[in-house]
């Protein structure tokens, strides 16, 4: 019962945090579903520069509102995705994109997770190998005999006090 309750709480909390919070302030929209889809995906893809961890769709900042209006205007004017993203990048740089292109200034951003994975992998492999090496040293005859002695049930109870 407690388990179920806990699971339910988790579902509710996660549901609240990840539910799409679209178009923070004004419900700008389009009749045409294709334009609406383009508009919504652009707002999710563009970062608000004032509150940097929010997309244009989420942010309540004035600047985000202005940029939403601008994106809306450009979509209404029939501009395509590349043109609109290009317009934003020209003014605000790659920073405005949540998925910046890979180039000289951003390769580290893209490669860092891979490098971290690779480094961790190497470290793990080294420790495993070292562990394997220590385990695989064969016992000498003398040690084998001693091991046999130690693992046999003691008969004469010499260990008891």
């Amino acid at each position: 019962m407690a388990e179920m309750l806990r699971a339910l709480c988790l579902v509710v909390v996660l549901g609240l945090t990840v539910s799409p919070t679209f178009a923070a302030d004004t419900p700008l929209g389009f009749e045409d579903p294709a334009q609406q889809a383009l508009f919504e995906s652009l707002l999710e893809e563009l970062r608000c520069l004032v509150c940097q961890n929010q997309s244009l769709a989420d942010s309540h900042a004035d600047l985000a509102q202005d940029l939403r209006d601008e994106v809306h205007r450009m979509v209404a004017a029939g501009e395509n995705r590349e043109a609109i993203l290009g317009f934003m990048v020209e003014r605000y740089g790659d920073f405005v994109l949540y998925r910046p292109p890979v180039k000289s200034t951003t390769w580290m951003l893209w490669l860092a997770p891979l490098m971290l994975l690779f480094g961790t992998g190497i470290a793990w492999w080294l420790t495993q190998r070292r562990a394997a090496v220590t385990h695989s040293v064969p016992l000498s005859e003398e040690e084998k005999a001693r091991l046999a002695r130690l693992t046999i049930e003691p008969q004469d109870d010499s260990r008891q006090h």
Partner: peptide
């Protein structure tokens, strides 16, 4: 400064 965004301009 996390608020510093290099300007492409």
């Amino acid at each position: 400064d996390p608020r510093y965004v290099p300007s492409p301009l």
